[in-house]
């Protein structure tokens, strides 16, 4: 069982502290419409990177379950999907706020916005599926693991392939340049990469906590009472 060790918190403190301080105070390129919101690169973008990474872990643990038939892995997949969903919702909310002050509307039906919302809806079906089979642990785990594999591939398709095929306002999609074009001296990158690692780190810590909780609950319900 993956317990959270002291150095994990130390790393988290270093990475996110660095992100907060230098992300808010560091030098950024001055651009007309973006203004200071280019700093959203350190807070909004890592949410999506984090979501995809956590969903990828969830997908891996689903495969582990299907190979070993141990519900331990299914619970781990469930925990990672929960935190991935949280990151996705936060990414969508921060993105909507950013869109209001750069594109003019909270929701303009941009392909990237729509496909991100569809991706979250697909993953919300994962949780619905889970709550519909609460009396059969093995069946629940099997259904969920198979669905998780499908959902992960759909999320890749929706987030990285479809928005690039059409016109999109989102940076890095549909003919729009990504932030790497503005990052001439590489100063954004020095904060962007630690920010991504830091947010993913926090997500994994939270997911492991939930996994420990789910394991305890399982032990209580299936060994204590029987």
């Amino acid at each position: 069982m993956a317990t959270v060790k002291k150095w994990h918190y130390g790393m988290l403190f270093l990475l996110l502290g660095y992100t907060f301080i230098f992300g808010l105070l560091g030098e950024v390129p001055q651009l007309p419409i973006l203004g200071q919101t280019i700093r959203g690169l350190y807070f909004h973008v890592p949410m999506w990177f984090g979501m995809v990474t956590l969903f990828f872990f969830s997908f891996l643990y689903a495969i582990f379950f299907l190979r070993t038939k141990k519900t331990f892995w299914d619970r781990k997949a469930y925990a990672f999907a929960q935190v991935g969903m949280l990151y996705g919702i936060l990414g969508l909310l921060t993105g909507m706020l950013w869109a209001k002050f750069t594109w003019g509307k909270y929701w303009s039906g941009d392909p990237k916005q729509n496909s991100a919302a569809v991706c979250l809806l697909i993953y919300s079906a994962y949780f619905l599926l889970r709550f519909s089979f609460t009396s059969h642990i093995q069946l629940q785990a099997k259904m969920n693991s198979v669905y998780s594999i499908l959902a992960f591939f759909m999320s890749i398709l929706l987030l990285f392939i479809l928005p690039r095929l059409t016109d999109s306002l989102h940076p890095g999609n549909g003919g729009n340049p990504g932030f790497n074009v503005y990052d001439l001296d590489g100063s954004l990158r020095w904060i962007f990469y630690p920010a991504i690692i830091g947010w993913i780190w926090w997500g994994i810590i939270m997911a492991n906590m939930i996994h420990r909780y789910l394991n305890l609950k399982h032990q209580l319900l299936y060994t204590y009472e029987n």
Binding site: M47, L93, L97, W98, F101
Partner: peptide, 16 residues
């Protein structure tokens, strides 16, 4: 528009 960034940060931290 620096307060957009601050609000983003607040949304994320409140969410967590």
């Amino acid at each position: 528009k620096i307060y957009v960034v601050i609000t983003m940060l607040v949304i994320i931290l409140l969410g967590c």
